[in-house]
Design a protein around this nucleic acid. Structure first.
Lengths: 243, 243
DNA sequence: TGTACATCAGTGAACGCGCGTTCACTGATGTAC
DNA sequence: TGTACATCAGTGAACGCGCGTTCACTGATGTAC
């Protein structure tokens, strides 16, 4: 009743933004609760609107899905970036790696529906448009930064010859590695890029296992389990404590 | 027309078995084509039956799903076992590990719908019954055998101290590791069990990335990519060539 | 070997439901003069 | 400051569709005597 007066035309715009946000929240709630497929009608019902009203905000069900997916990527990406920043004491590359890794896991456990949306199996009848690819790389980039910074600072130890992989003999693959390296902020001839990609694969494999219940009846000490995966990956990459 | 005569009552039984099998095949085809959710009516249509006829073979949609899931686990499990057996030359632990790993990948790429069924995100509105847990461990057990045999034969090199993880201080977690170790045929005090579990996590992470399209626009040389993941995991576990 | 009965696969209609999307509409909010 | 018009959010009915499941039925296959 005693609001400050709004800048004229924005009152409708603001309500619109709030509604759009609420629709997305309700949709996420639905995905989370029933694990159900997303239904516009169900969302409308939950919001106390008639189903056709949703079309004022999203032109179709797939566009709503796309919005949710983009939001999820952005949210996870931001979480990862924040975790990195919070741990970003000078030279503390290992701490940054842990911070980012654990943040990703925590985000996924807290929001399994959103996680499944972006790292689970593809959604039946839906194919992600291009708009999703940029946000998708944000998390990857945050993980990369910890390792690329460490390498740039000369703090990545090369694996000793007993466990070193011989360089690939596949020139195309080598070229792809170089391209990915520079896209992620590594030096083109980064020695660690391949192990970094492996580490990323492993991290999401581990989160998948935990979130999708593949650890049930086997590992209950999941925090410890995950932490030790991260440790192992750090040493595999050659990022060591207090070096 | 010139068949050998069937053992009396089994003609109906045999047709029944064939129909059951065909229903499952058609259902898989549907999952693969549309990536769609499984629909009894669609399956019936494809088989030229009326939808209610399916109920002579499966009491409900979920039971059909369960059958598909069990079949998928068994099929992948058998693939892994066969790959192990084929590579099972004396002492060739590394060859066995590669053989099993590549076989898992090939199976997943050839049958992405079935792979998604068992290693993708949980299916909306469906919760897997207990009958699925035994078949689920078959693949894991096959992977385990390569490594457990190597360890039993003294052919697993312990990581040198620079990259060794200190033992966990979490007693519960340690106990869980021991339990998993003996369930999978490792010695209770196996030194490699933890790295083995990491390797499994990583392998399925890698297959997930490839099957679910997370490698698109980044890595095209996927055979090489996967092969090198396996190599890296082998050295991480301490399984070395010609040792 | 032939007949009487039981089992079973498949039919076709129906139940009750939910879905995405469209369309013409009402009434409230914003804009231009 | 007041009026005329344009924009927009939300309604309610409808379209056409697909779904899982049930039920009483027909006719063919198997079984017992």
């Amino acid at each position: 009743m005693t609001d400050e007066k709004p800048p004229a035309r924005s009152i409708r715009a603001r309500v619109r933004a709030e509604m759009t946000e609420e629709i997305k929240q309700v949709a996420l709630g639905h995905l989370a609760r029933d694990g159900s497929a997303l239904s516009l009608r169900a969302v409308a019902r939950d919001m106390g609107m008639v189903s056709s009203a949703i079309y004022r905000y999203f032109p179709s069900r797939d566009e709503l899905l796309t919005a949710l997916i983009i939001d999820a990527y952005e949210s996870l990406g931001e979480t990862a970036e924040t975790a990195d920043r919070d741990a970003d004491r000078q030279d503390a590359y290992l701490a940054r790696w842990f911070s980012v890794g654990h943040a990703i896991r925590r985000w996924a456990l807290a929001r399994p529906a959103e996680y499944a949306l972006i790292y689970g199996s593809p959604i039946p009848g839906y194919s992600a448009p291009v708009d999703t690819v940029a946000p998708a790389t944000r998390t990857l980039a945050a993980m990369a930064r910890c390792v690329a910074d460490a390498e740039a600072a000369g703090k990545v130890k090369e694996p000793d010859s007993a466990i070193a992989l011989p360089p690939t003999e596949n020139a195309d693959y080598a070229a792809e590695l170089r391209a990915v390296a520079s896209a992620l902020g590594f030096a083109e001839d980064s020695k660690v890029i391949e192990r970094f990609l492996s580490a990323v694969t492993h991290v999401f494999g581990a989160v998948n296992f935990e979130v999708f219940g593949r650890l049930n009846n086997a590992i209950d000490q999941r925090g410890e389990w995950f932490d030790r995966q991260l440790r192992l990956l750090a040493t595999t990459m050659g990022i060591n404590p207090q070096q």
